[in-house]
Design a protein around this nucleic acid. Structure first.
Length: 369
RNA sequence: UUUCGAGUAGAUGUCACUC
């Protein structure tokens, strides 16, 4: 059973729910953990409704639920913003009496906050006598997501008063809010606090800051943050590249990727994706072909995300042959890939081919959206 | 203290929408 459980968990963590399911279906013996692993996979991989279905099945089978099961179920409720379901799980937790577990309470607070019930989240929070940083962060994030900046401010002050040190997650939470050029002052204020606390130099905070400045239209400030960072992970590079191209500086995005190459850094699939978008936005054909070569070398050319970005890039550069050649070689085509090839041909006035691709798509049984 | 599973936070594909 252990092996089965580990396998299911592994497949879920690799993002393949299908494989996880087939292991699950083929298993002779199942424990709560077997179910729990499958449930967690669905809750975390964007299949919250299916996660709740699994929870219901577990319930009807009369399995003994434990904390792990509740946490994943509550995550699913939070994603769906299904407060009624969340409350139901909550009362179930009270019945089983494991409401004292800090992990469980944090997840409950997070669930209430994400569903917009900040008062419930706050009162649960207040009733506790022991709080860890995750719990604080969950509530901070909740206020931020509801755009309740007074609440954010009050809570942050209370953290200081109680001597709780914010960590990088706290700052990332503060920065995940809505930002527009009108909110640059708020962004800068948060940045000042972070610098004052000396927490500027971590990648999660750095990329959140960059993203914030880009959303505020302050490309130079964003790049300033990037330059100051001594340790850059791939998310940081992607953030900056994406930031340049969305801020109308696609040329700089390309330049940055050259710097990345010259430093001998491996590009991740996400980096490729950002970079290809930059290339297509300015129809940078030569650079696009270079990226294509990099993609081939890294072996992630079968990734549908990358493939569709490549097809789109070639199409936007006006090289439909290259787009077609890539398309033909793909073994797995999702809607986005089909859309990209169809739109590419339509964009260039080749409506006949566009229609042909459309009928081709229907023949293969893919659903248009 | 979660080594069979479980809590908060960062970037990423096509098209359409407001202007």
């Amino acid at each position: 059973v252990y092996v089965t459980n580990i396998l299911i968990d592994m497949y879920c963590k690799c993002g393949s729910l299908e494989d996880a399911h087939s292991v699950f279906d083929g298993s002779q013996e199942r424990t709560v953990v077997t179910w729990s692993a499958l449930l967690a996979g669905h809750a975390q991989l964007g299949q919250p409704s299916k996660a709740l279905k699994i929870f219901e099945k577990m319930h009807s089978k009369g399995l003994n639920m434990d904390n792990a099961v509740f946490l994943s179920t509550l995550q699913a409720c939070a994603r769906l913003k299904d407060i009624d379901y969340g409350k139901m799980v909550h009362s179930y937790i009270i019945e089983i009496s494991c409401e004292t577990d800090l992990y469980t309470v944090s997840t409950l607070v997070d669930m209430y906050a994400k569903c917009g019930h900040l008062e419930s989240a706050q009162s649960m929070f207040d009733k506790l006598c022991k709080r860890d940083i995750v719990l604080w962060n969950a509530l901070v994030g909740g206020y931020v997501e509801q755009d309740d900046y007074q609440g954010v401010f009050a809570l942050f002050l209370r953290m200081q008063e109680e001597g709780v040190e914010p960590d990088e997650v706290t700052y990332a939470c503060l920065l995940k809010g809505q930002f527009t050029p009108a909110s640059l002052d708020r962004g800068k204020l948060i940045h000042t606090v972070i610098s004052f606390k000396g927490s500027e130099n971590t990648s999660a905070v750095g990329s959140s800051l960059i993203d914030m400045y880009i959303k505020c239209g302050a490309v130079d400030d964003a790049y300033g943050v990037f330059e100051k960072l001594s340790c850059r992970d791939s998310v940081l590079w992607s953030t900056m590249i994406a930031g340049f191209s969305s801020g109308g500086h696609a040329q700089d995005a390309v330049k940055l990727s050259q710097k990345m190459r010259s430093e001998g850094l491996q590009m991740s699939p996400a980096t490729f994706s950002c970079l290809l978008k930059a290339c297509s936005s300015i129809a940078a054909f030569k650079e696009g072909k270079l990226v294509h070569a990099d993609v081939m070398r890294s072996g992630c050319d079968s990734d549908v995300h990358i493939a569709s970005a490549l097809i789109d890039m070639f199409a936007k550069c006006g090289s439909l042959e290259d787009a077609r050649r890539l398309f033909e070689r793909l073994s797995c085509r999702d809607v986005v890939v089909w859309n990209a090839i169809i739109a590419g041909h339509a964009e260039h006035g080749d409506f006949v081919s566009a229609m042909e691709y459309y009928t081709h798509m229907r023949r293969e049984g893919a659903m248009p959206d």
